[in-house]
Design a protein around this nucleic acid. Sequence first.
RNA 1: GCCCCCAUCGUCCAGCGGCCUAGGACACCGCCCUUUCAAGGCGGAAACACGGGUUCGAAUCCCGUUGGGGGUACCA
Length: 451
Amino acid sequence: MSAARVRFAPSPTGFLHVGSARTALFNWIYARSVGGRMLLRIEDTDEARNQPEAVDLIYDLLTWLGIDWDEAPLLQSQRRERHREAVESLLECGAAYLCDADNQPVAGTTLRAGLAARFRMPAGRKVSFHDAVRGEVSFASDDLEDFVVWRSGGAATFLLANAVDDVDMGVSHAIRGEDLLSGAPKVILLLEALGAPPPVYAHLPLLVNAARKKLSKRRDDVSLGDYRARGYLPEAMANHLALLGWGPTDGVEIRPMAEIIQQFRLADVNRAPAFFDTKKLEHFNGVYIRALSTEEYLRRSEPWLGEAAPWPAERTRPEVLEALAPVVQEKVRTLGDIGRYVDWLFLEEPPADDDSWRKAMGGPQAPAVLDDAIATYAAADWTPEAAHAAALALAERHDLKLGKAQAPIRVALTGRTVGPPLFESMVLLDRAEVLRRLRNARARLDSEPAG
RNA sequence: GCCCCCAUCGUCCAGCGGCCUAGGACACCGCCCUUUCAAGGCGGAAACACGGGUUCGAAUCCCGUUGGGGGUACCA
């Protein structure tokens, strides 16, 4: 065990940024790797945009990711008096001073409405500290200005609240984004004036977009909740996030969190920004989905196949989903993709996809293949094997490879060139329905040739 | 502008003075497998930003240049 205490301090804005999630994860991994404690502090001092549901969403998403915490979360909104005390003590010892709306100093040491308080930046100081990921970092106090610690509206600013709360929570390591690095010397000086030792800082490299800019809520796809909604598995997301700014020495990237915790060292964290590459995330997700047992896969895909499915819920046939599960599970990269693979089995008509139609029906042999398929499947046994054998024979009659011959049939039935294995899935539809779709496609070919 | 941080394949990591003719993963390309698409197998292309030092020896240490990022609010 160690006395390490770390904290994740999000503000409840209604969503959780993947960058914040990564910060939370690194804090948690560090805590678990050294036997320390993980704490939460909800920075809900901005009443304007605070919603109580937003706090629950944070708990929910962290839990989803696999992050737990060891003590009741601290709500910063309830700490106003404590913050006021701290500012007053700063005013009393002269480390801070009052000022009016025009930033003119005002004599006195009593906080009152309409007046803000600024920290008095000492002259000629060199503020150095050892950052656990960056090493020695140093700032000159002369480059720093007198910053506001108490707003005229009657509330502490981020810097002050952060410093005081960390002290009161006994935070030993402040692990956070690099965007806060420039604020560190101010907090250190603040803490010094307050007579408290600073925590060990660890500034993580930022997560950036393709343009190498800090991920932004407006431009980028950064809502953790959105990824969950699209069918990313939490273990894939956590695994991927853990590899942004850190990597195991043995090169094994996809692995249980327990092993990551075992190998993680704060000092091994990179210092350069990392691109949040969703391509790699998708790959990870596919690997994790394939690793699921079929039962587990079925259970976890349920949320995407009920009311949220791309077909009327009452048309869902669970036995079909179940029968197809193993083959769909192999292909899909997110649970949200499942719908597009199996929708044609539940929709009244195959989904319309012009590209697929042109691709499969454009060839000169399409009409003949469809005619043949109609005759063939009117008679064939209704099993995958028989459907396969029939298609092989059909292909031979038209002097085509099976891959080429099945294309018009696939598109006639499923609407798309891409989908689950055809013979295994087509027999899950009634023979009459298969024939109807084949005839419809054949008729469409006459009325509007695809070539 | 000023302050701070950073710099290995397109991307994410490994590398912490000799094991590096720089390794893995994603993406990409080719081949194989194949009932589409995936998955899988095999192979390929692909990087130490540049310039000076230090050292017998540098991707690894130091300095500079260039480039990138972050900060600079009575936001957090």
